[in-house]
Design a protein around this nucleic acid. Structure first.
Length: 488
RNA sequence: GCCCCGUUGGUGUAGUGGCCUAACACGCCUGCCUUUCACGCAGGAGAUCACCGGUUCAAAUCCGGUACGGGGUACCA
């Protein structure tokens, strides 16, 4: 069943990079909109001038773009709607639901200290309620001293609301103090601003982080005071790090764009994050976006936190990479390798762009199954382009094999290569197997030093594929170098 | 401290009162494949379903308490 009026929003505040947790919230909103043929709205909650970061909005938008989380409306910035909030705050005063409060920050601080001293819960004592400050007083004094508008919370009673994932949640109103809805700089607080925006934007479902549960009664109260219907509330639990603490920089990359830089594919990130705190109910793990959309529903969102497991993400990313076509993967690898060149990466100046580009299509299939992140490719590609391999003498000689046998084997290999013009893996393999037989060596005993000679590594893609990619001339040169090392 | 939410192998999840001697995926281990690594394939170890009590003929599943974890407790969002 499709709800025609689904309208959801992602409403980050521009105070830094978009975190993985924020991304997951965005994903859930987006998926829900797509699944129900609804609208996904982007709203920037920039009501805190002191924490405002001018690069943040850009970073948020880049992150969403990277993940292809497209929005239907927005970005709408709250700072541009200041007068609307002000007007409604005043309306709330007129209807008796709010009041001006000129309690000074110092006074508030003193109150808090005293409460802590008396081991009482620190809470505003609603003292400003009885001052009955007028609109006129506010207008005349707002520039010379801080005056806020507070919501008048009823003194008692229970304010329940329905959380779509947890069910009924109840708060006792005596736990809630008169909270600020309009700050002394004239900006609304989150509580006021988002309620107004959500109402005006006809938001049907508020899908947001669990940290909002405790303040939801306030939001419900504001709706009541304004005579508005509630949206449905959907609180998703947080994502924790391996140590079960809230995910942060200590756990590695935390911002979405970091994952882009690290070589993760947006499809994999999306898939992985969708599975944190939600599951389709069957055993599906790797799903394309359309499958996830088709399976997504709020009643399968979990109400407990999930630990972010980077290893599983790597696995999933690798699985997505293995599914990429040659052209597509090559393009990504090229981008990555060129990027890291500029940043002083593994493949630097001596590898000309043309050389790399001319070979990438041959190389890509060789490393596809060996990379988990696109950024792994530089290391795996390195030796295809460098002549100086930095090989240790000992590494060339397998155990139980005499060094002279190896020198001889490599020399014979050179001779063999010189006679071969048709460089293809199957043919080479046949020739080299015969050579090993002639030398009375096991295939591996000959192949091993050749691999080291050609790549400088104990492990590589299949030897003869590697040999073909390196080319006849280079292969011969590298074998010569290895013999030199062995002779010294 | 107080309030709210949660708790199934190391991790993500399945399970909605009998099919659970608890399933799947990641990770880990073993074997196979192979010239190495990876991929792939076949197996394996790993959970007294946080604990205690209750309801019931029957509980991972319902109820209560405890413990533990997380969130909130701002003129931050």
């Amino acid at each position: 069943m499709v709800n025609k009026n689904v309208r959801v929003r992602f409403a980050p505040s521009p105070t830094g990079n978009l975190h993985i947790g924020g991304v997951r919230t965005a994903i859930f909103n987006w998926l829900f909109a797509k699944a129900n043929n609804g609208k996904f709205i982007l709203r920037i909650e920039d009501t805190d001038q002191s924490r405002y970061d001018e690069n943040s909005e850009d970073s948020i938008i880049k992150s969403l773009n990277w993940l292809s989380l497209d929005w239907d409306e927005g970005p709408i910035r709250q700072s541009e709607r200041k007068s609307i909030y002000m007007e409604i705050a005043k309306k709330l005063i007129d209807s008796g639901w709010a009041y001006y409060d000129d309690t000074s920050p110092e006074e508030l601080e003193e109150l808090r200290k005293q409460q802590i001293r008396e081991k009482k819960p620190p809470r505003y004592d609603n003292r400003g309620r009885y001052k009955e400050i007028s609109h006129e007083y506010y207008e005349q004094n707002k520039s010379i001293k801080p005056i806020v508008i507070r919501f008048k919370v009823p003194d008692g009673g229970i304010k329940p609301f329905i959380d779509e994932v947890r069910g009924k949640v109840e708060f006792n109103l005596k736990e809630i103090d008169d909270f600020v809805i309009l700050k002394s700089d004239g900006m609304p607080t989150y509580h006021l601003a988002h309620v107004i925006d959500d109402h005006e934007m006809k938001i049907s479902h508020v899908i947001r982080g669990e940290e909002w549960i405790s303040s939801t009664p306030r939001h419900v109260l504001i709706h009541d005071a304004l005579g508005w219907d509630y949206p449905k509330y959907v609180h998703v639990s947080l994502i924790l790090g391996k140590d079960k603490a809230k995910l942060s920089k200590r756990h590695g990359a935390e911002s979405a764009l970091d994952y882009k830089d690290k070589g993760y594919l947006p499809e994999a990130i999306l898939n992985f994050l969708a599975l944190l705190g939600w599951s389709p109910g069957d055993n599906s793990e790797i799903m394309n976006i359309q499958e996830i959309i088709n399976k997504f529903s709020i009643d399968r969102i979990l109400g407990h936190p999930a630990v972010f497991d980077p290893e599983k993400l790597e696995w999933m990313n690798g699985a997505y990479i293995r599914n990429l076509g040659d052209e597509e993967l090559s393009e990504k690898i090229l981008l990555e390798v060129n990027k890291s060149k500029n940043e002083g990466g593994l493949l630097s100046e001596s590898v000309s762009k043309q050389l790399l580009e001319s070979k990438i299509l041959i190389l890509t299939p060789l490393i596809r199954e060996r990379i988990k992140k696109i950024s792994d490719s530089s290391y795996l590609l390195e030796y295809f382009f460098y002549d100086e391999l930095n090989i240790e003498k000992d590494s060339l000689v397998p155990k139980k094999v005499d060094i002279n046998q190896i020198i001889n084997g490599l020399s014979k290999s050179i001779e063999l290569l010189q006679t071969v013009d048709d460089f293809n893996p199957e043919f080479l393999e046949e020739k080299f197997r015969n050579l090993a037989k002639d030398l009375e060596l096991k295939a591996g005993q000959l192949f091993f030093p050749i691999r080291i000679s050609l790549t400088g590594r104990k492990e590589s893609p299949p030897l003869f594929d590697t040999m073909c990619a390196i080319g006849k001339e280079n292969s011969i040169n590298r074998l010569y170098s290895a013999i030199n090392i062995l002779n010294n």
